[in-house]
Structures are given as structure tokens and as C-alpha cells.
Amino acid sequence: MYYLGIDIGSLTCDAVLIDDSEKILASSVVPTGARNREAIMRAADEVLRSACISEKEVTATVSTGYGRKRVEGRLTAVTEITCHARGIKALLPGTRLLIDIGGQDSKAIELDENGQVVDFAMNDKCAAGTGRFLDAMARALQVDIEKMSELDNGARGNLTISSMCTVFAESEVVSLIAEGVKVNEIVYGLNRSIASRTLSLIKRIMPNTNGLPIAMSGGVARNSGVVRAISNAMESKVVIPPMPDTIGALGAALIARERYSHN
């Protein structure tokens, strides 16, 4: 039997296919774009093709992410908080704090020793410090978003990006470039500002994380510069699972298996 998890995020649509033994058979990440139904089909097609499985052979599908209720034929829709927690429990058991930064949401999720969600906090009023924020900053810096990870190399780190609003931060970055500030310093400053926002989410639910296993998921976890900044801000190691952007979809697939067996 096969179980499919689909995570429809604001920037990417991810799919993970697992079998009855919870083995990951295939995963895919496609841009969501303006038409999320097409992205859902593409992501699902990709994993099915890569695992040589037909759609009919999928026993149950669970969807998550902001477009979770747009997936037809789903067993159920579950929020990304629960799915990321389930996914990280499978890959990094024992994690007590999961930081998930996606396209437009950042979340701090507190887990108990069994991997159950105990508390969570999310960005509410605005999407500064998320994937879209990084996209906008890469645009302002005229650099490839994929290369942002290493662009802070060698920064002395005395620059702070003070604007909280994405649009204002973009102007601030443009001004800094005009003043001749080096790109690595600007990127370091941006990473620190994301880390500071993330830290305030974390502290709201977990004032003390000393010695607890911490992991990070979501597309932004692929940016090692941001991860380093968060790790420095927390004075703790932050572990990144393999393919961090598919953790939500993996959690959804695992929940599909559990719910189907339970029903």
C-alpha cells in the first residue's frame, strides 16, 4: 500500500510518497505559481512517475499547507504545524523544538518527548523574515536566491537591517548597496534580522531551550546562512534533516498511513 502527502505552500508544492513500512519512495518540489491545482497535479505526478506507481495504487492522500483544502480525493486535510511535527519525528526523533520557515509563514513548534505538539507560535501580522522576504532581498541585491546561503562568507557582522517591513527592508538594502556596503555584510545583516524575528517567536513558547534538540524544516532551512544566524542567536546547534522542504509533505504521508490504518 502507498500513501501520498502533499504540501501546498505559497512558494512551492511538495509531495512525498511512502509505503506501508514508512519508507520514502519518492519526493518532489515544484513551484506553486498562480494555479495551485496544476502544481498539485505536477508534484503528485512527479513522485508517482519516479516511484513507478499509478495513481490508483495510492491508498490514501493527506494534504497540508495553505492550499490543503484544494486537493481532490484526499482522506483529510491537516495543518502544516501537525504535519511538520510528524515529519520531523520520523527523521529526527527526539526533537523538542522545530523551527519551520516557509514561503510566507515562520513557526516555532514545541514538541514533547513523544514528538507531539505542545505549543506553537507563528508570524501573524506580516511575512517579514520568511521565504518571500528572502526572495525580495535577493532581488534587491541582484543575486540568485540559491546562492544567498554562502554570500555572508567573511562578513565582519557589524551591520543590522533595522526595517521590519519587507518593502522598507528592500529599500534599506538598496541604500546600503548605493553606499558601497559589501554584499556579504548586507546578507549577514539580513540573516541576523531573520534570526532575531525567529528567536522572538521561539521565546514566546519556550523561554529556555538549553540542551534541547532543535531542528529546522521548510525551504529556508536550505539557506545555511540563515541557519547559522539562527544557531548563533540561540547559542545552540540547529539540525537540518535531509530535504527540509518536504518535511510537511512527509508528515502528511505518515498521517495518511496512520489515519487509513486507524479507520
Partner: peptide, 18 residues
């Protein structure tokens, strides 16, 4: 509304699991 629904649904899922 969508943002709020996600938060509330996640809260309900959390309550159901404890």
C-alpha cells in the same frame, strides 16, 4: 481568514492529540 483558520485548526489538532 485563511491565516487564522490555519492557526485555529492547528490548535484544535494539538488539543485533540493531548
Amino acid at each position: 481568514e485563511g491565516q487564522l483558520i490555519t492557526r485555529i485548526e492547528a490548535f484544535m489538532e494539538m488539543i485533540e492529540s493531548r
